[in-house]
């Protein structure tokens, strides 16, 4: 018989080895239950990367219900846990974490956090914002992504291009201004980025735009 969520939570709490913890977290993440949120959030602070990845995936599956709890329980002093939380916000796209994502994309110390945040900025669920807040927020996202295109790490620039493409594809009341800025940036990257993978990704984004007309 399948285990109840409560039993799965207990298994995480009782795990006494790194591998045991990983398996227990994976099992708990799979049920996608909101009652698992506090336990999964706690795992982010355990300094066990395998288990944290599984917990991040589990929280992203749960989606928006996980965001308020995570925002309330962000540990300012545990850098690792914060970094994992940013990945959850990036994966869920809830605008209540927008400020954290904007800051993380441009200033976080870890390149994998900047990478996740840059991508996540392109996939914000704008319909959750009051209509008059959408344009200022999108403008801020646009400006941040344009500047993240100059990050020192290729993979962060790559993620920023993915973010820009996604931003382009979302609804926007002032589309023409955004389009112009994004297209100019992509063309500039194709001309000047030192990394061929980043140039190719920009080319792919440009192709998608042309297909969309």
């Amino acid at each position: 018989m399948a285990k109840s969520t409560r039993e799965l939570i207990q298994a995480v709490e009782k795990a006494d080895s790194a591998d045991g913890l990983l398996e227990a977290v994976e099992a708990l993440a799979e049920v996608r239950s909101e009652t698992a949120i506090p336990t999964l959030v706690e795992v982010l602070g355990f300094n066990n990367p395998g288990a944290a990845v599984a917990a991040v995936d589990g929280l992203i599956y749960i989606g928006e219900p996980a965001v308020p709890y995570l925002l309330d329980n962000l540990d300012d002093y545990n850098y690792g846990a914060r970094a994992w939380a940013i990945r959850v916000f990036a994966g869920v796209g809830d605008p209540s974490a927008l400020d954290l994502l904007l800051k993380a994309a441009s200033t976080d110390f870890s390149l994998s956090v900047r990478r996740a945040a840059a991508r996540g900025l392109g996939f914000i669920n704008w319909s959750k914002l009051p209509p008059k807040e959408i344009l200022p927020a999108q403008t801020e996202v646009l400006n941040t992504l344009l500047s993240v295109c100059n990050d020192g790490e290729w993979v962060v620039r790559y993620a920023a291009v993915v973010g820009l493409q996604a931003l382009f594809e979302t609804f926007n009341p002032h589309k023409s201004y955004f389009v112009k800025q994004i297209l100019e940036k992509l063309k500039q990257i194709i001309e000047t980025d030192p990394e061929i993978a980043v140039r190719a990704r920009s080319q792919m984004a440009l192709r998608e735009f042309n297909n969309l007309g």
Binding site: R119, V162, R201, M204
Partner: peptide, 18 residues
């Protein structure tokens, strides 16, 4: 001049890992 299907597939895989 254009990207091949293979390159596009690779980039789609990469997008999924960001």
């Amino acid at each position: 001049v254009d990207l091949s299907q293979e390159s596009i597939q690779l980039m789609k895989l990469m997008d999924g890992l960001l």
